[in-house]
């Protein structure tokens, strides 16, 4: 009996050690590769793509990206999985019940760490709405999560540049917060809130089963893998599309339409309704940027992510259409205003 328990404990310890070693080596690999500017292959430029035969363009582009992007992607998915798994979810649920301002704070603080696909986003939105925090924090959460989660920020920084990643994060906070506050003041926002408050909450007891660290780590890696499986196919399709875009789209067209005030407007309108799955907006943004889109338009394009049509459709089943339209208009205005502002400040409009 003792021996069996000993063997089990030993196996646990070994598994925990191996998993931790793997995670730490990925982090170390990321830091090392960024410090040493290491890459498996020389980076391609737009000019290199022009000379290639048509079938080789996407292959060369993919090899080029993954030869230096793989470590960041790997790290991003592991981090997303770890944080989602280890975050104390029952605490979030409890604090959300504390009321409005706690709700806003929590929505802003938690959204970046909860990497969500649309599938987890909608229950989260509904959950916040019904938890007692109300419509404002729910909208804030909804707008924050797609554009400011750890996966999107890491990839924005790595594929584009880090200043943009921080600007994107800051602008997301401002836009999400103001949209939440405005919607919660509108009559239709209030009526949605009242409806939710009237429905009695079913009290549910949580009987926690303490899990071992190795189980948690393994579950986290599995969740990271699941996210990768959901997101990477679209990401790769996006890269292939962008490789042709970069190879064949003349730079003067992008330069003509996606710069200046008009460029910001066009980018902000394209960014929203054009449904781009998570992370693909970064890939396409990179393509357009290297073809001459201004930085202002680039930010406006990225800020379009939270108000895409698919998200809006899902939310409209829970909240009213007026609520959806209100937050979409505010998010769109935010993307235009901050796109222009960033364009002016960075000297690239």
């Amino acid at each position: 009996m003792y021996l069996r328990i000993g063997a089990l404990e030993g196996w646990r310890l070994l598994r925990t050690g191996l998993l931790l070693a793997f995670i730490i080596s990925v982090i170390a690999g990321l830091v090392y590769s960024r410090i040493m500017a290491y890459s498996l292959a020389p980076t391609l430029s737009v000019a290199d793509l022009h000379g290639l035969p048509i079938w080789l363009i996407p292959i060369a582009y993919l090899i080029d990206y993954f030869s230096h992007g793989w470590i960041c992607l790997l790290f991003a998915f592991i981090a997303a999985g770890l944080i989602y798994e280890l975050i104390p979810k029952h605490l979030i649920t409890t604090y959300m019940r504390r009321g409005r301002s706690a709700g806003y704070l929590l929505a802003l603080a938690a959204a970046p760490f909860l990497t969500v696909c649309s599938c987890t986003m909608v229950p989260l939105f509904a959950g916040v709405l019904y938890s007692g925090a109300g419509i404002g924090p729910a909208i804030t959460f909804l707008l924050m999560a797609p554009s400011a989660n750890i996966l999107a920020i890491l990839l924005t920084g790595d594929m584009l540049y880090w200043e943009l990643a921080w600007v994107r994060l800051a602008v997301s906070i401002i836009v999400a917060l103001s949209a939440g506050i405005v919607v919660s003041k509108t009559p239709w926002g209030r009526s949605v809130e009242r409806e939710c408050h009237n429905t009695a909450q079913t009290a549910v007891a949580v009987s926690g089963v303490e899990r071992h660290l190795d189980e948690k780590l393994w579950a986290a890696l599995k969740f990271g893998g699941y996210l990768a499986k959901q997101i990477l196919p679209y990401f790769i399709i996006g890269l292939i599309a962008v490789s042709y875009l970069e190879a064949y789209l003349p730079t003067d067209i992008v330069g003509r339409y996606l710069t200046g005030v008009g460029g910001v407007l066009i980018a902000s309108v394209l960014g929203g309704p054009l449904y781009t799955p998570t992370l693909v907006e970064i890939v396409v943004g990179k393509g357009l940027w290297s073809l001459g889109m201004s930085k202002g338009a680039l930010l406006a394009w990225l800020m379009g992510q939270p108000y895409d049509v698919a998200n809006a459709l899902a939310v409209s089943k829970i909240a009213k259409w007026r609520v959806v339209l209100t937050y979409m208009v505010i998010a769109w205005l935010g993307s235009v205003v901050f796109g222009l502002l960033y364009g002016v400040l960075s000297g690239s409009l």
Partner: peptide
């Protein structure tokens, strides 16, 4: 999602057995 929210759950998948989450 509405029904899920009414049961007090924010993170899915979730399992409730006889009112215990």
């Amino acid at each position: 999602p509405k029904e899920i929210a009414k049961l007090g759950v924010m993170f899915t998948p979730a399992v409730i057995i006889n009112n215990q989450l």
